[in-house]
Design a protein around this nucleic acid. Structure first.
Length: 266
DNA sequence: ATACCATGAACAG
DNA sequence: TGTTCCTGGTATC
């Protein structure tokens, strides 16, 4: 399930498996006819920008993939019969990788890649990320902070889970108007998102809860109890029922005890 | 067999 | 703001 950490893991994995190898690229489903443009080329490496993945080939072309909500890569045994939904298949002598259900799977040249990269903003997982750009863009945005955290021009790679959990960690209500967000709160959010994304890359799953807060060990945290508010019935910290509501077409989650709408006047 | 749901985003108006 | 697309697992009839 893809937020930015998943895509960065894939970039790392695909580079490890395929770099320097001649790769067969095909589209069993038939909806990626441009596969022929890179079929049989040497794989140069993979790179992630937020939720966007690029496969670089020796002829200067790239395959740009965006997984959307449903997209997945599967490593298969050689000879595995592809599902009829397999958009792209990569094959070497010893390896088969299938791509299912992406929002985007297209061949681009260097200019096309640059266009995509220009559409996304700073990615906390990248060393070259510039949080000042995110801060400036946030200042110019109107509306509440919640939807801003899903804006890929501000926080590339952040999705709904990281949004809900990071806002919780800093006690910020998702409906807080952007002008009320202080520089200190922005810095804290950026820092926390960066940490959560890195943990996600390392662990291969989203882990947002500080287990020491509850005297738990990491293995006690699972899908059901391992989040503060995202898809929780009750707040993991205080037990208040979690409020879930639609914000600009996406579910938003908050504990309105731990994330009060207004900071109390000391 | 059908409905619903999900860690996303482009596009129309 | 609403609509559409992408897929597959689970729930429901």
């Amino acid at each position: 399930m893809p937020e930015g950490h998943t895509v960065h893991r894939l970039a790392r994995r695909h580079t490890k498996l395929l770099r320097g190898k001649t790769v067969g690229v095909s589209s069993p489903q038939g909806r990626f006819a441009d596969a022929a443009l890179v079929d049989g080329q040497v794989f140069r490496g993979a790179e992630a920008w937020g939720k966007h993945l690029f496969h670089a080939y020796d002829n200067g072309l790239f395959v740009h993939v965006h997984l959307g909500i449903y997209g997945e890569f599967h490593e298969r045994e050689p000879g595995f019969v592809p599902r009829d939904t397999t958009r792209m298949r990569l094959t070497t002598d010893v390896l088969t990788i299938d791509l299912i259900g992406p929002t985007a799977c297209e061949v681009v040249d260097a200019d096309g890649k640059a266009e995509v990269v220009a559409r996304v903003g700073p990615d906390p997982l990248r060393r070259d990320a510039d949080p000042e750009m995110a801060w400036e863009r946030l200042r110019r945005r109107k509306g509440p902070i919640g939807p801003a955290l899903l804006d890929q021009k501000l926080f590339a790679g952040v999705g709904n889970v990281f949004r809900a959990e990071a806002l919780f960690v800093h006690g910020i209500h998702p409906e807080t108007p952007i002008p009320e967000i202080t520089r200190e709160q922005f810095d804290a959010l950026w820092s926390t998102l960066t940490r959560m994304l890195h943990v996600g890359v390392k662990e291969g799953r989203i882990m947002t809860v500080d287990e020491t807060e509850f005297g738990l060990t990491r293995r006690h945290l699972n899908r059901d109890n391992g989040r503060y508010v995202y898809r929780q019935e009750a707040c993991l910290r205080c037990g208040t029922p979690v409020r879930r509501w639609d914000m600009s077409g996406r579910w938003s989650y908050a504990c309105e005890t731990c994330q009060p709408r207004k900071i109390s006047e000391h």
